[in-house]
Amino acid sequence: MDQVTQHNNQQAQRKAAMAVLAHAEAGEIAARLRNFTLPAHQDLRAPENGLVMLRGRIGGDGAPFNLGEATVSRAAVRLASGEVGFGYTLGRDGEKARLIALCDALVQSRDFGGLVERGVIAPLREQLMVRRRQAAEETAATKVDFYTMVRGEG
């Protein structure tokens, strides 16, 4: 595997992990992390709250416009072994941003990457999928099926 592919793979993996973590509660991430001995790490940037302007597109698919802002918390963490992780999340939970940053650093680590994927990301992803499936099934029950109505009448 060449270096560029490797870099892209790792980026995709980090992004996939962040996508799961952003949907979890700080307490859920912390509880999963407590299951293993973490390497030494420090805050590279203490959690801070700010705003991100959210954009939509005219007509849904056209030129962008500014819809309104959202609160966002962010942090950065460095492992003693050098990996730097970033954490971003909607809301103002600085601890959650810090935990995401820690996980992002761990995901990049040779020694902890697999462990954090199996012990933290995978179970949280499963939990997210279950929640989504539940919501999708409740939504599906409200689907109006015109074909069925026509058949029923005939």
């Binding site: 705003l51 991100v52 302007m53 954009r55 597109r57 959202a70 962010r74």
Partner: peptide, 14 residues
Amino acid sequence: TLPRFGTSEPVDTG
């Protein structure tokens, strides 16, 4: 009272 970090990618309503 809050600083702005930047702007999001346009959301995909599709």
